[in-house]
Nucleic acid binder design. Structure first.
Lengths: 345, 345
DNA sequence: CTGTTAGCGCCTTCAA
DNA sequence: TTGAAGGCGCTAACAG
């Protein structure tokens, strides 16, 4: 075992200071507030730091300074590319700051969500970004007490604790369904996976648009307790078509499901978009290049994450816990999975 | 601002202890080593903790105990579902431990990888899980010095620092290409995105299998510096087919590319698998339910992540930095995107 | 089973 | 611009 270094002591600020004959606080300052140390001394210190391989102990720093520089990010899952997009935005913003991300997911379980939040709060986080599962009292209470800024990425029409950021999923879904109606589809179903805040809002939008058109029928909805996946899309479509033989379109809670539907339609011999329309949600990478392309709702995921991190970082710098609600815009992207020219009745 | 609590002091162990007339170490023990405190006292303490809303300060704990309970996980990206699968495994194992995950990605940038590793090491991590970009001297040096166990998820034929875990990407790729050859395809191309350890090993496997068959031709390879995506799959296939009109199959670095190829084949009017064979890599969710299904290499991603976390957690408990190399098995999954019955020459 | 003592490594505050 | 003193909240090590 040539690489063991068990016996080695960690190099501390004091070690560096002693080697140079200065005090440890000066070394500390040279590292964190370089402008407060004379440039000649600073250069010597930095060289010595490099030389001795000094690495700051973040736990000690956090304890002494009372802030850890950790941003806790909690989402329901990572198996969903939509949340990945958000994470990518958060990361991008955090990269150029001196903070770090601590990530966790709740796996669509409320208890886990609560537990994770508690763990975050144990660490004097600089801030928290939460894409929550639902509006729960216990979560709200916990966030209300949190000694740091909190940003929730959630439906914009809800009013959660702290800052929030999002689109109206209800409106977005209604827009999608109205598009299907405008294309001339009539028996429009909806498929969805595990129940959560966002999927329920989307369902409401679907139901509202179908009611407007006088075509609402609860039997057109097919859901499942599983987490969404391409495979689930296939399964749900099979189930729905079997139950509702005259189904002529489907609004999918997300693009993964929609992709599954696309494949299943081919297997079933349903022609898309002529006989059958498909609309997804999120505008993932593949929606633009599938054959046919997938009509879907574009959600500015990256911007959402980026902006959420921005809000946290700014609020942390200012030391407050501002209230703030920010609406982002969605967009319907029309592609080949729905008819190009709306039919005239 | 009714929710500000800026003036509030944090509840400490000592506060709880004072309220009960015991010493703080006893409260500490009641929380961490309950069996060492009499059950009556323990019950009183736990109640008081609950009552006062005490939450341990993890930074203080880390400083005092010299371990943070943080497992640093570093992967190239999260936009790739393959890494998500690994993460899911890591999470699952970590969930039932008292550790936390600190996640970061290098975004396929070596400098970022190095920087992140340095940040992890600043935090007295309990361990590190690394899916590295390449075998780099600076990274190896840093890991060699790391005062914690390190697990690398990497190609198994390489011998990285610390523990490692993985499959032979070279062999897996060769297996895939031999399958295409056995199906009777002859002009078999390969497409890939950003260069990295794993993609290069796959290329070697491809090249080896093609040489065996006497059909190796460098012009059959089409790559791009972009990160892989479904869209890139479409683009690379278009480019390749244009350059090599008699191309009759393609081995894709991963399933995202393969899905793009599948769509593009449809657009180009190439019949899969009759006129054109496609083999992916990873066996993502959609490979099993696309139409046609995607022949691909199954990689035990979840198990990889789970096992990596297991190794870290175990090594951390034992306090050592064992050397350990563990091979996992891949499997060729034959589906509709390659011919069912191998042709006889 | 419970308590005492003494830091962990750094930063805040105040002083020079 | 630099330094001295003290403490952040917790736990290891050792007593009783």
């Amino acid at each position: 075992m040539p690489h063991r270094r068990d016996g080695m002591q960690r190099v501390t600020l004091l070690d560096v200071a002693n080697a140079l004959g200065v005090s440890s606080i000066t070394v500390s300052r040279a590292l964190r507030e370089p402008e407060k140390v004379s440039s000649t001394l600073r250069a010597r210190i930095l060289a010595q730091v490099e030389d001795m391989g000094y690495v700051p102990d973040l736990a000690a720093r956090a304890l002494a300074s009372r802030h850890s520089g950790i941003i806790g990010v909690l989402t329901p899952t990572l198996t969903n590319l939509a949340f990945i997009g958000i994470m990518a935005g958060v990361e991008e913003r955090v990269r150029s700051s001196d903070m770090r991300i601590q990530y966790a997911n709740s796996n669509y379980d409320s208890e886990a969500e609560l537990r994770q939040l508690r763990i975050f709060l144990s660490q004097s986080p600089a801030g928290i970004v939460l894409a929550g599962l639902q509006q729960e009292q216990r979560v709200s209470d916990m966030l209300r007490r949190a000694p740091c800024p909190v940003v929730q990425i959630v439906d914009i029409e809800l009013m959660p604790v702290g800052m929030s950021l999002g689109i109206s999923h209800r409106e977005a879904a209604a827009t999608a369904v109205r598009h299907l109606l405008a294309c001339g589809y009539r028996r429009i179903g909806m498929i969805a996976g595990t129940r959560n805040l966002r999927s329920e809002r989307r369902y409401e939008g679907y139901a509202a648009a179908m009611r407007e058109a006088g075509g609402f029928d609860p039997s057109l909805v097919e859901t499942d307790a599983s987490v969404t996946s391409v495979e689930l899309g296939c399964r749900l479509l099979r189930r729905l078509v079997k139950r509702v033989p005259d189904l002529d379109a489907v609004f999918c809670e997300n693009d993964d499901l929609a992709l599954g539907v696309l494949f299943e339609c081919r297997r079933l011999g349903l022609r898309v978009p002529e006989d059958f329309g498909i609309c997804g949600y999120n505008d993932l990478d593949f929606a633009a290049c599938s054959e046919p392309g997938l009509t879907t709702i574009h959600v500015p995921r990256f911007e959402l994450g980026y902006r959420a991190a921005e809000l946290v970082i700014r609020a942390a710098a200012l030391g407050g816990r501002p209230d703030h609600v920010e609406r982002m815009e969605f967009e319907l992207i029309q592609r080949g999975s729905t008819r190009r020219l709306p039919l005239q009745a």
